[in-house]
Design a protein around this nucleic acid. Structure first.
Length: 276
DNA sequence: AGCTGCTCCTGGTCGC
DNA sequence: TGCGACCAGGAGCAGC
């Protein structure tokens, strides 16, 4: 599932494939993906040129020459590809954009969870999840002080607080589990019970982990590929996610899987000791 | 205000 | 073999 490193990989691919191209028509076979409906997309985008591809958290921001921004969230399974219009259409392609050079930008989403929304460029941070999104996971934006203040306001499981996009942008289920294993914190620990040392450790781990995952092109579990069709490399670095029953790399204890806030959660019961 | 639980989707897996 | 139950889950929302 695309989390920040995967969305960043998609952004980089789209930047090379799409900038400078002009949309000549938009099509869909599942209109719910297009917030506001297909007609609005055709009216806003036909004849417009892609000027840049940005990203905030897990949201892609496709910029057009008429000061329109297409906000795209891939959710669970969304993927983009740019191919010749003559290529056979896969059954899970739900939105496709004709381009002026005979290519098509295709949006593929088996579960139909992803959404696209149009806004005036500059107003995107007022819309939906972007209105409450937290800092990007880099040392300049994401400070220990703000993180600790957030933790102090919540008594629910630390994993749930990491998944809250207003804490820090871009963490999903995989990187939440991986961060907590690296910081040696039990995922059910109440957020307000973390020590200062644990909060600092977790903060630093989150920044380093996401940066490393971006460098490796993201994590390909299930079906993730970037816009150029490339798989990521971070799946080889996973220590707990998808490793239920396998020995912990640090201590050899079998990795356990539990539910935390309705999410499948992987951890080492020996290295990540619960406290409340 | 904080938190839980439900909804959207469908392919894959499992048990009978 | 066929079928139904259940699982995976990000974000938005209702409701307590």
């Amino acid at each position: 599932m695309p989390e920040l490193p995967e969305v960043e990989s998609v952004r980089r691919g789209l930047a090379t494939l799409l900038v400078g191209k002009t949309v000549t028509a938009v099509h869909t076979n599942w209109e719910k993906v297009l917030v506001g409906g297909l007609d609005a997309f055709n009216q806003a985008l036909t004849g417009q040129t892609v000027t840049a591809i940005d990203r905030r958290g897990k949201y892609l921001l496709i910029r057009f020459s008429n000061a329109t921004t297409l906000i795209s969230h891939l959710r669970m399974e969304g993927k983009y590809q740019v191919v010749a219009a003559s290529e056979p259409m896969h059954r899970f392609v739900h939105v496709w954009f004709d381009l002026d050079d005979g290519a098509q930008l295709r949006y593929h989403d088996m579960r139909k969870f992803g959404r696209m929304q149009l806004v005036a460029t500059g107003t995107e941070m007022q819309v939906g999840g972007l209105a409450t999104i937290g800092p990007e996971p880099n040392p300049e934006s994401f400070t220990v002080a703000d993180f600790e203040a957030k933790l102090a306001r919540h008594h629910k499981a630390i994993k749930s607080v990491l998944l809250d996009q207003s804490t820090v942008a871009g963490i999903g289920n995989i990187y939440a589990d991986e961060s907590l294993w690296r910081a040696q914190i039990h995922p059910e620990t109440p957020a307000d019970q973390l020590s200062h040392e644990e909060a600092v450790k977790l903060h630093d781990v989150v920044i380093d982990l996401l940066a490393q995952a971006i460098t490796l092109g993201g994590t390909s579990v299930h079906t993730f590929v970037d816009a150029t069709g490339k798989r990521g490399g971070f799946q080889n670095e996973l220590k707990v996610y998808g490793r239920t029953g396998e020995p912990c790399e640090r201590c050899g204890t079998a990795i356990q899987k539990i539910k935390v806030g309705q999410r499948g959660t992987h951890f080492c019961p020996h290295c990540q000791v619960r406290k409340d």
